[in-house]
Amino acid sequence: MTARDEQETTVTAMRDDTTVSVYTSNSVHLRKLKNLASTRDFVRLVREVGDGAEFVIDAPFFHLFSAIRGKRTLSDEAKAAGAARLAASRELRRSSAVDEALRERDV
């Protein structure tokens, strides 16, 4: 297995190509791409090379920046509001609370 600090993912995409070539030795990316290749027709395994593999993905299904997200920082007020929404949701999940909410709705 490739050492963690040597695992890489390389994406090759030309502007007018209909496919994107992805080589990875990153174990997380490799597992996800293999799963997609076995269940979806727009991801194809081209070849396995040592600890890595090369895949071809149809360009319309490849979104380079969709997985790159900045970390969200919530204010204390936003955290409290989220906690209140979660608590209310959990309360509704209890059968008696659900039955009562349905009765109030139907009145």
Rank of each mutant, 00 (worst) to 15 (best):
E8L: 15
E8C: 14
T10V: 13
T10S: 11
T10N: 10
V11S: 02
M14H: 13
R15W: 03
R15T: 01
T18Q: 12
T18G: 14
T18S: 14
T19Y: 07
V20R: 03
S21T: 15
V22T: 06
Y23K: 08
Y23G: 00
Y23S: 03
T24Q: 04
T24N: 03
S25F: 00
S25K: 08
S25N: 12
S25E: 01
N26T: 01
N26Y: 08
N26Q: 11
S27Q: 13
V28G: 07
H29L: 01
H29G: 00
H29W: 05
L30T: 05
L30A: 10
L33M: 12
L33I: 07
K34V: 03
N35V: 00
N35D: 09
S38W: 00
T39D: 11
T39L: 02
R40F: 00
R40I: 00
D41F: 10
F42D: 14
F42Y: 15
F42N: 12
F42S: 10
V43R: 07
R44I: 10
V46Q: 14
R47F: 10
R47G: 02
R47H: 11
E48M: 13
V49Q: 12
G50Q: 04
D51L: 06
D51Q: 13
D51I: 04
D51P: 12
G52Y: 01
A53M: 08
E54Y: 11
F55T: 11
F55S: 09
V56F: 01
V56Q: 15
